[in-house]
């Protein structure tokens, strides 16, 4: 079977610091990493390839340096990597990104399943997976906590929702977005790392995907960020010190309010 994994290179948000005055990110020395949520999507694709046969192609969109996340995917065992890179993609929101990835999936051809991470840790939108599915007019299953069963015709997924688990039987081809509950991503293999060392991604531009300037980048993006700010500060109140018993008395007064103080 033919599997595609859509991945993203993101700044490691755990390392991001904030310029509170300007409300912007301080990006000095923050490493770029493969979106952690995407590693579960990749692992799921690799597992199904290992059991059913076929290939795993990883696709990402970004500047030339985003090649690094494809290389990482190759070292984990992916077969091929495609980098969608073009000046014209700059400023893409989730609509424009979804469309570009969907066009790439079409161009790869005969794909059975597209796996995506639940969301990216920089934007946290969780919109690209459904957007790709809509662009391809394929069914989608989001928030997949477990893929139970897969054949050439269909897939049975457990979709984790607020109050339980939906068990869905979905015809292929389809787009799945994978939760971290689904698996434990593998560590790269030595052969994977050796292969990754000489790996060169396939490069596709907007024109390669048949996308017009109106559909890509800023023009193809209905939304845009107008301002950024740091979360509104809530000011700290009084800070109490003392023995545990003294602190307990103050806390009890505040917590119990009008309740009698005996």
């Amino acid at each position: 079977m033919k599997f595609v994994v859509a991945v993203k290179q993101v700044p490691d948000t755990a390392e991001v610091r904030i310029d509170h005055e300007k409300g912007t990110l301080i990006r000095d020395g923050v490493p770029s990493i493969l979106n952690p949520f995407d590693t579960y999507a990749l692992e799921e694709a690799l597992r199904w390839r290992d059991s059913l046969g076929g290939t795993v192609t990883v696709i990402t969109m970004g500047p030339p340096q985003a090649e690094a996340v494809l290389t990482e995917a190759i070292s984990m065992g992916a077969d091929e990597g495609i980098l969608l890179t073009d000046r014209a993609f700059a400023g893409s929101d989730t609509r424009a990104t979804s469309q570009a990835i969907a066009e790439a999936v079409r161009k790869v051809g005969a794909v059975d399943v597209v796996f995506c991470g639940k969301q990216a840790i920089d934007g946290d939108t969780a919109q690209t997976g459904p957007g790709v599915a809509a662009s391809l007019d394929w069914p989608q299953v989001t928030f997949v906590g477990r893929v139970r069963e897969m054949t050439e015709e269909h897939v049975i997924c457990e979709r984790y929702v607020e109050n339980g688990v939906q068990v869905l039987d979905t015809r292929l081809p389809a787009v799945l977005t994978i939760l971290k509950d689904a698996n434990t991503p593998r560590v790269p293999s030595l052969r994977g790392k050796m292969k990754a060392r000489t790996f060169k991604p396939v490069l596709w531009s907007a024109a390669d995907l048949g996308l017009s300037p109106e559909e890509t980048g800023l023009s193809g993006s209905p939304t845009r960020v107008v301002t950024t700010a740091t979360p509104e500060a809530r000011h700290g109140g009084e800070i109490h010190r003392g023995t545990p018993e003294e602190l307990a008395v103050i806390m009890a007064d505040l917590l119990l309010g009008k309740e009698a103080r005996s």
């Binding site: 593998r186 560590v187 790269p188 293999s189 030595l190 052969r191 994977g192 050796m194």
Partner: peptide, 21 residues
Amino acid sequence: ILARSDLFSIYIPEAYGGTGM
């Protein structure tokens, strides 16, 4: 996990399925 990362291959020659490191 070590097996999946090919670590048992490193002391075995390539002719016998290893990586001969």
